[in-house]
């Protein structure tokens, strides 16, 4: 089992990016985080993640314009992995 779940929604029409991201987030197991790739700032995503108890961090992407990292609030292991990726520089 890998710690990173990669989801590229950059070619999908609304509301698919939102739907698929929320679905993928719900399926995260402890220690896992979701790395979502998108062509633009996501619409309506963050409010919905807040409501469902997820944390997130957005940054400029490499292959796509935007990347969002998503993990369960309180999942320290997943969070530290995200922090590591974010501080490591690319990718």
């Amino acid at each position: 089992m890998t710690a990173e779940v990669l989801l590229d929604v950059s070619d999908l029409e609304p509301p698919e990016p939102l739907v698929q991201t929320l679905e993928a987030a719900e399926q995260l197991t402890p220690g896992q985080y979701l790395r979502m790739l998108h062509r633009r700032d996501p619409c309506m995503l963050f409010g919905n993640l807040d409501e469902r108890g997820f944390s997130y961090q957005q940054r400029e992407g490499t292959s796509t314009a935007v990347e969002v990292f998503i993990w369960r609030q309180g999942d320290a292991e997943a969070e530290s992995r995200v922090r590591q990726v974010l501080s490591d520089g690319r990718p």
Binding site: D41, P42, C43, M44, F46, G47, N48, D50, E51
Partner: peptide, 8 residues
């Protein structure tokens, strides 16, 4: 800036 909408 995000067009950050919740359904409400």
């Amino acid at each position: 800036m995000h067009a950050n909408l919740s359904l409400q």
